[in-house]
């Protein structure tokens, strides 16, 4: 048991370290989809390993082989049979020492962590659904169509922006400012970018990372993970848009919105513009001077690493309990 716990603890810590390395790496921009898969595997693996390690500690710390927490029927003082949970390591019934207190704490933490992770995921989904509902309500009252952009909702706001509202009744929204600022070809490129977000459900990719950030606001790693996955998702949509039209149009659209957008334009996770000039420059450079894609061998290795990473904690958790 302790060996598995140590292994899970190592996986958990390893995921955090790997996340830091991945944040600083340059290769993800060459194959955003592969990098996103790796991020997802890291997140999943960390969650499972951390919960597993804490729960395993709670059950196994100080346990001798073959003895674990057991329920026993004993004679209580009143002479009636009573259920009793006896701890491993020879702790007498009803007798707590430091070791059993630590174990109980670990077990409780593990269960609590699992509960927290499930809860924040649920809370994040609820928050997103509420936000989308409100968006649709407001769009219903304020948005209109425009012959320049059939099928797209237009909102009368001077700042140039374009974003999508994902979901079952997905829509793309463009501001009047964007219609004025961008040329027809640039608009087409931006719309192709937004459609890629909707088609490939990038909102679902971002959701777990946003949820993790809500739960662990203080964590630099969680913030970094969320930030990098969001940027990779934008780059992925850029790549998809590039298939449908020249890359130059999307590049100039991004630059135009950022430089002349007309002031504080909202830059959301799925909006066509980005908040930071450095990131914008990175996206534009990527569009105009694409680096060669990762060699197939590296892609295969990365996917394999992601698969192993995701399965590692699950494999450890499924190993038979009796192994000391």
């Amino acid at each position: 048991m302790p060996a598995i716990v140590l292994a899970l603890g190592a996986v958990s810590a390893g995921c955090v370290l790997a996340a830091r390395r991945l944040s600083g790496a340059a290769w993800p921009r060459r194959s955003p989809a592969v990098a996103i898969a790796l991020w997802q595997a890291l997140g999943l693996s960390w969650g499972l390993a951390t919960v597993g390690a804490l729960v395993g500690l709670g059950i196994g710390l100080g346990a001798r082989a073959g003895s674990g927490p057991t329920w026993r029927v004993v004679e209580s003082a009143a002479g009636r049979p009573a259920w009793l949970l006896t701890g491993a390591g020879g702790v007498a019934a009803g007798h707590w020492n430091l070791l059993s207190a630590v174990r109980a704490l670990c077990l409780a933490s593990g269960v609590a962590l699992l509960a927290v992770l499930c809860w924040i995921l649920g809370a994040a989904v609820a928050a997103v659904l509420r936000a989308r509902h409100r968006q649709r309500q407001l769009l219903g009252l304020l948005a209109h169509g425009d012959p320049k952009v059939p099928g797209v909702l237009v909102v009368d706001h001077p700042a140039a922006t374009a974003y999508c509202v994902p979901g079952l009744r997905a829509s793309i929204v463009v501001s009047a400012g964007a219609l004025d600022l961008l040329s027809a070809a640039e608009l087409d490129a931006v719309l192709a970018h937004e459609r890629a977000h909707l088609r490939e459900r990038h909102d679902l990719v971002l959701l777990p990372f946003a949820a993790l950030l809500r739960a662990f606001r203080w964590s630099g790693t969680a913030r970094s993970a969320n930030h990098h996955v969001a940027l990779l998702v934008e780059m992925l949509a850029d790549d998809r848009a590039r298939r449908r039209g020249p890359a130059r149009e999307l590049a100039t659209a991004l630059l135009r919105v950022a430089a002349y957008g007309g002031g504080p334009a909202p830059a959301g996770a799925l909006a066509a513009d980005t908040a930071s000039a450095a990131e914008l420059t990175a996206r534009v450079t990527r569009l105009l001077r694409p680096q060669p894609r990762l060699p197939v061998l590296l892609v295969v290795l990365a996917i394999a690493a992601a698969a192993i990473l995701a399965l590692l904690p699950a494999a450890a958790l499924l190993l038979p309990w009796g192994i000391p």
Binding site: L138, A159, V165, P266, G268
Partner: peptide, 28 residues
């Protein structure tokens, strides 16, 4: 309402604080 629409467009992730900072911070 239009302003609320634009602001909450980035509230997808529910991180209102980040949404507000991004909205306030235009490119310098």
């Amino acid at each position: 309402y239009v302003a609320e629409l634009m602001l909450t467009a980035l509230d997808e992730t529910g991180d209102r604080q980040a949404a507000l900072t991004r909205f306030a911070r235009s490119v310098s």
